[in-house]
């Protein structure tokens, strides 16, 4: 490829401008977590770190038991992500590789339900969960996210690239369908599975409405609930530094996990989603 559209310096300049634009809000989040109200609400935006980081952390720990909150979020997110990813990988793989009675119907139902907004199904979902006694449990928060239609859709796209010849060869060797999936398909699809898992992870980590209606025990609360309780409480003054400390400590770890997975698996995933 010898297309010399731009000189390298210009390319780097454009890319670096992009870098600054995309990284800035994260940088500001971290800096503001070290400031107090006077600085954050002050006349001009201030990018110098202040001395209040520990004080802000201490406040959110004392007021909201933040370590427990982080643990709750982590538990729900990790368990939910593992289960959901396994279930949806299976389903996506089957939808891509098998034809059976009703497979079209299922696919169409999945596609239609992707268009129904979450608010619309909140009350019915809560109703069902309450009938099976799952309110105020972690399971009640995890279960509604398990059958993620987006993940199934993505996994179906990925799995279509998985060569059917491999399956046929394995069958000739006498392997069962489950063995083929677990021993051959899963390893081949790992980068795609990681990508799907990452989006599911984000979904659980940031989910607000389900935990709000399901969890009735402050000791089970998750990070988005605490953020809402802080910002929406019109009865007590808000410490913006403490809020930023929560934002920073909840966003940055996820960003780091993402970057780590990136280097580990190279592929960015949605890559292979679109053929």
């Amino acid at each position: 490829m010898k297309r010399k559209i731009f000189r390298p310096t210009i390319i780097y300049l454009v890319l670096i401008v992009g870098l600054v634009v995309f990284a800035l809000p994260y940088v500001y989040m971290i800096i503001a977590a070290t400031q107090n109200n006077a600085t954050i609400l002050g006349e001009k935006i201030n990018f110098t770190p202040g001395p209040y980081f520990m004080k802000n952390l201490k406040e959110i720990q004392e007021k909201y038991n933040y370590v427990k909150v982080l643990w709750n979020s982590a538990f729900i997110t990790i368990v939910g992500t593992i289960l959901s990813t396994f279930i949806t990988t299976l389903a996506g793989y089957v939808m891509a590789k098998y034809r059976f009675k009703g497979s079209n119907l299922i696919f169409n139902l999945v596609m239609i339900s992707r268009m129904v907004p979450g608010f619309a199904v909140l009350i019915p979902t809560f109703y069902i969960l309450s009938k099976v006694g799952l309110t105020n449990t972690y399971a009640g928060v995890i279960i509604p996210g398990l059958a993620s239609t987006t993940s199934v859709f993505m996994m179906r796209q990925y799995a279509q690239k998985f060569p059917t010849e491999l399956m046929e060869a394995a069958r000739i060797d006498g392997a069962g369908e489950w063995t083929i999936f677990l021993k051959i398909a899963m390893p081949v699809l790992t980068p795609s599975i990681i990508t799907t898992a990452l989006l599911t992870f984000m979904g659980y980590w940031n989910s607000y409405l389900m935990p709000l209606v399901i969890l009735s025990d402050s000791s089970k609360f998750t990070i988005p609930l605490v953020i809402q309780n802080m910002t929406q409480n019109s009865y007590d003054p808000l410490n913006y530094g403490a809020l930023m400390a929560i934002l920073a400590t909840s966003v940055v770890p996820v960003v780091l996990i993402y970057m780590w997975l990136q280097t580990k698996f190279k592929s960015n995933g949605i890559d292979s989603a679109i053929k």
Binding site: M95, R99, A120, T125, I128, F181
Partner: peptide, 29 residues
């Protein structure tokens, strides 16, 4: 291929949760 039985069993976990937490709520809405 046409290995319906295995396919059904692999779909089952998803289907259960899909019906309970998405399909029925969608019909209800």
């Amino acid at each position: 291929t046409n290995f319906s039985k295995a396919a059904y069993s692999m779909m089952l976990p998803f289907l259960i949760f899909f019906i309970i937490t998405i399909l029925i709520p969608t019909i209800m809405s």
